[in-house]
Every structure is written in C-alpha cells, then in structure tokens.
Design a protein around this nucleic acid. Structure first.
Lengths: 213, 213
DNA sequence: GATTAATTTAAACGAGTGTTTAAATTGAGG
DNA sequence: CCTCAATTTAAACACTCGTTTAAATTAATC
C-alpha cells in the first residue's frame, strides 16, 4: 500500500496523542486502532500488550530527549564559569522544542506523557525510566546541585520533584489553562511561551534559602 | 445495628481513601462497597451515580477547608501591615492540618483528591469547584496579588496554577517520594513537613520578578 | 511461480464496569 | 401490633475492556 506509513508507526502516532490527552487507562486500544486505521489485534501483535505499547510510546521520546539534554548539560559544564540555575533549566528548552520537529506537538505531548506516567503508573513506568535513563538523570541532578551548593542534597531531592510537578501538571492542563488565559487576559501562549514562563518560577523556588522554622 | 456507622458515611470514608490512592476511574464501586462493607447498589441509592459520589467526597472536604482558609486570609487582611507571600501561603497550613482532625490522614487525602480531580476530570469537577467555591478562590487570589503587586494579573494567573501543580503533584506521589527520601537520605517526613518544605519554594516562585528575554 | 514466513483480519473470549430492578428486610408512627 | 415508608439485598443487564485465536491475506525467498 503506497503512501501508507508503517502499522507500528501509525499505532505509536495515534497512541501518543490520545495517551497525552486523556491518560493511559482512559484510552482504549479500540480508540487507538480506529484513529490509526489499523486492526485492533495489531497492537498485541506488534507490541505484545498495552503496557509495552505505553513504554514504547515514551521510549520514542526519551531516546531523543535524554541524550540531547545531557549534551546541553555537558556543554554548560565545559564552559569557563559555573552556570546559573536559570541557565541550566533554560538549557533544556532547545532539547524540548526539538521534539516539535520530530513530530507536530511533540514537546507538549512528551511532557504530558511524562506527567501521566508519573501519576497513573503504580511504578512500572517509574522503574522503566530510572533504569533506562538513570545516568542522564543523575548528570542533570549533579549540575543543578553544583549550581545551588547551599541546598542540602535531601532538600534538593524534594525541590527537583517540586519542579517536575510544576511543569508536568502545567502541561497536563495547558490546553484548559490557555483557554482561560485567552478569555480572561487575551493572552495566547504556545508551548514555548509557557515553558519560558515556568522556568524562572522553578529556578527561584529551587534556589531559595532553606528556612528553619 | 449498634456500633455501625451510617451507610452513607461508610461509603464516603472508603471512597475518599481509594480515590486518593488510585484515582477516580481506577477505583470501582465494587471495591469501594466491599471495603465499606455495604451493598453495591447502595452507592446508587444514596448518591445517584459514581460521578455524584466523587463530588460528594470532595464537597465534604471543601465545605470545611474553604471557609476556614478564607477566615485565615481575612485575618491577615485585617492586620496592620501587608502580609508577605510566605505568610499568606503559610496561613493555609492550619486549615489544611485541621483536616487531619476531621478524619485521619485528611490533609493528604484532600490534596490528593484535588490533584486527581484536576488531572482526571474533563471539566465537570473544575466546574463544580469554581461554581461552588469561586468566591473563596478569588479572595485568595486577591490577597496574593496584593502581596506581590509587581506581578501582572495574567502572569499571576499562570504562577498560581504553577503552585497548584507543585503541591498537587507532590502530594499525589508523596508516599513514593517519602519512601525514596527515607532510603536515600534517611529522611522521614509527614504531611506537615512536606507542606512546610513546599511553601518557601512556591512563595519564591510566585514573587520572582518577571523577566523579558 | 511455488513455498514459506510475516502480517492483517474478523470474531470470540472472559473478566470487569456502572447501573437498574424487584423482592426482602428494617425502622418508625399511629 | 400493624402499616407504610426507607433501606438493604441479590441478581441481572448492557456495555467496554485487553487479549487470544485461527483463518485470510500480503510479502519475501528460493
């Protein structure tokens, strides 16, 4: 069949969009396969199970994003002077926006998938990410810690998860928030604009001195 | 039957715990009624539908929390000098922790329910909250805005949703995060400790000057 | 072009879902 | 004590879900 993309790819493309929009368990294989215009059974044929499809959808993004982000971090590390927190977080903008070139809407889809995965899964996705991409994560954590040496490691652990929550929750409700912002403030933000809004917020929060009260 | 609580209450008690732990759609009525030791059909008899049960579960907390929180905000407003962002956010600690007296684990359950509601629902819960408790929300937004007058209203809209994402995501994964923190840093935090960690982070983020780059 | 492997297809399976029904049980009020 | 309403109960309903099966079709190899 000429002009028709791979069945496997058609499934992944349809699945990632629906997963990002409505979550994993809210998205049935029947909905995915009908949007992808492939047979229901082809999911189990090509991926084995729905769980493995979810992992494949995420892996397709992580395999692009993680090395790219790690490269940016290393570039900052080789610079003559210590990078600021804002610079470190901002260095993730390019890798994130490059996902838009991989697939239309790739950036927001990736961030939404990440959030869905963290909130929905009971652990199998968390395990998948940390065991497959753990090395990338630790270089990032190390870079952030070096840039805010006044924050103890345990406190940094919590704050980095705060940032994850911030970005992930924001992206999960980005469409709804954008609608309200457009109606109430006549503001129209794309994914990049939202990312650029959230970075100063996160950087300030991560670096704020620890208070004991 | 002596010593046995109201069927309606038994359902609400069992439902809120399960909803907070695993989400709304992941929790079946059969699981709820078996934990509550009541008949399956009693949910539809007392609440009409699962959707209305979800709203009832949330309302039971919001009816306590919202007036209490609004009272604290007004107390700050009547003080001689302008409250700081830290003070405003901190003023929510007491109303939040009071929920622990209403029911065991009430604080974290409430925050987790809020997060589940915002992420899972396609709007019916958002609508329910804003139409039933909108007045409370705007007094809070007003207090925050007055305390950070250098932040434009549109920017504040986004930043307050950032804070919502921060707290809600953190609480949704609080158990898992606490396990890691205990293993890696020998830290043992209860709900209050986590709230006290997150407030400086949020206050710093909300108040950080808007940069144009 | 025949043979073998890879893929696609339609159909069914078994389990789980929220909801409804009608009968059985319980609790008050007269 | 009897009556009537409120509640509880067991059973069934109609539906959706992920997965499996076996036959049909397509693609590749010799």
């Amino acid at each position: 069949m000429a002009g028709r993309t791979d069945t496997k790819t058609r499934i992944l493309d349809a699945a990632e969009k629906l997963f990002a929009e409505r979550g994993f368990s809210e998205t049935s294989l029947r909905l995915i396969t009908s949007k992808a215009e492939v047979n229901l059974a082809s999911v189990n044929y090509h991926f084995g199970s729905k769980k493995e499809l979810i992992r494949a959808v995420l892996a397709r993004y992580l395999d692009v994003f993680m090395p790219s982000a790690a490269g940016e971090i290393k570039r900052l590390h080789n610079a003559p002077e210590q990078a600021s927190l804002n610079e470190i977080f901002s260095s993730l903008i390019k890798p994130l926006l490059e996902l838009n070139k991989v697939r239309q809407g790739g950036t927001i889809i990736f961030l939404q998938l990440l959030g869905r995965g963290y909130i929905e899964s009971q652990g199998h996705l968390r395990w998948f990410i940390t065991t497959h991409y753990g090395e990338y994560l630790s270089t990032f954590v190390q870079a952030v810690s070096a840039s805010a040496p006044h924050i103890p490691a345990a406190e940094m652990f919590w704050r980095l998860h705060f940032t994850l929550g911030t970005i992930v929750f924001t992206m999960a409700s980005a469409d709804a928030l954008n609608e309200i912002a457009a109606a109430d403030y006549d503001e129209h933000n794309d994914t990049e604009a939202i990312i650029r809004k959230v970075i100063p917020y996160m950087a300030a929060g991560v670096a704020v001195p620890v208070t004991t009260n």
